[in-house]
Design a protein around this nucleic acid. Structure first.
Lengths: 225, 225
DNA sequence: TCAGGCCTCCCTCTAGAGGTGGAGGCGCCA
DNA sequence: TGGCGCCTCCACCTCTAGAGGGAGGCCTGA
């Protein structure tokens, strides 16, 4: 069973080149080509390919928008590999958010393109080396920071860390007392102790500290409505 | 000028295999081999290679520790490519934090190992497809969240967003007034407006919102001392 | 056995936070 | 020109948060 592909690029020559390279592989079959985003969506619906090779810059509808649309509306497992001439941050992040499984530059050698397609078809993900580097750096920075500041968390007792976690959720003393089944006076004692130990002024700074130290992480819950 | 490499693995057979594959390339030269972390540090110091191919599981000192040590103390540009049999999350994150430029599984075909080494030597980064996928997912989740909540940020005026950013730094009304060159009364007006518009109760919740919405991000500065 | 740390709770006091309502100046746009 | 939104500032009021100091029960390790 071969990998079924749709190639999308507004330049027919480029499109044809990719299609030819891929079509020559015994396990890959190019089932359609498209010249812009709208056509891409149409071809995707019609042929239900395993992988879509998508250019970013295109007339009518660009590759990112088309990717979002296809991923959001597809009722079969489809994976998108983004092709770009440059690698500006903005595009990459938008592409990943759109649900792309990969982001490679057009200057890669044919055999790497082929293996990229196979990787993506198998459920993996693939980024251009320079992009991977940035992603790693972003990630590593965050981790390094976590460990640096979190050492100060060790000064706190177990109970204090619990209270700090509640503060980091935006709860007031009363809510914390109810949640931890203790009196508000006790909560105040803990809070004071936390602020003193960490050299903070008020609970707002405590929230900042919790996020900076990694005790709290974006994505846990919702505030307000 | 060829790429100078040190191969580190406790299994002589595996080490020899990698060394042979790489050594056959005209642009790659294996200058040393090491059987454990301590030896790796020694060889790195002695031969000052461009790239170190590092196994994780090793006696005496494991690859992660050795990587940390080498990266931290090297006075020349050295890059480490981690080799692992499995891909547990824990290892990957530790490796990235240690400063590794890549993380590949041992089952990759020889030609991909060679190109991985070249990529890393050129300053790029490379991860195994399955790991890249996880990294992307982690990242995409975060972004999706950002945009979801940040739509509420649009209700705020420009000035209010500035004030919110200051709140997210843990500053009190007085500090904000000094920083933005306005009166404290004005700051209070803005703060009230922010809390009302976002459905929040106090500035601690505002800090939470700032981090959850992506207006503030871990890593900006330090609180306390 | 006793000291010390942790958790619990109480009191008082003050400064800051936040709500409410009002006001003037500015720029934009119908 | 008149309205409208934004930014600026003021006064008054309420209330929570946080500081400071004290105290009892519990467990652990010297």
């Amino acid at each position: 069973m071969s990998i079924r592909i749709v190639v999308v690029d507004d330049q027919a020559l480029v499109r044809g080149g990719f299609a030819m390279v891929l079509g020559h592989q015994s396990d890959i079959e190019v089932v359609a080509e498209a010249g812009d985003g709208l056509e891409a969506i149409e071809m995707a619906q019609t042929h239900r390919p395993d992988v879509i090779l998508m250019d970013i810059r295109m007339p009518a509808m660009d590759g990112l928008e088309a990717t979002s649309h296809i991923i959001a509306n597809a009722d079969w497992p489809v994976r998108v590999l983004i092709l770009s001439t440059f690698d500006p941050d903005e595009y990459v992040y938008k592409a990943l958010r759109a649900g792309a499984s990969g982001f490679v530059l057009k200057d890669i050698p044919p055999e790497q393109l082929v293996s990229a397609v196979r990787t993506v078809a198998e459920g993996g993900a693939l980024l251009a080396p320079s992009i991977t580097l940035r992603l790693i750096e972003r990630f590593a920075d965050q981790l390094a920071l976590d460990t640096k500041v979190s050492s100060r968390l060790e000064r706190l007792t177990h109970r204090e860390r619990e209270v700090l976690a509640e503060i980091a959720h935006g709860h007031n003393n009363n809510e914390i007392s109810e949640k931890l089944f203790i009196g508000t006076a006790t909560v105040k004692t803990h809070v004071s102790s936390i602020l003193t130990k960490l050299g903070l002024r008020d609970r707002a700074q405590a929230v900042v500290f919790a996020y900076e130290s990694g005790l709290a992480e974006p994505g846990d819950y919702d505030i307000g409505h």
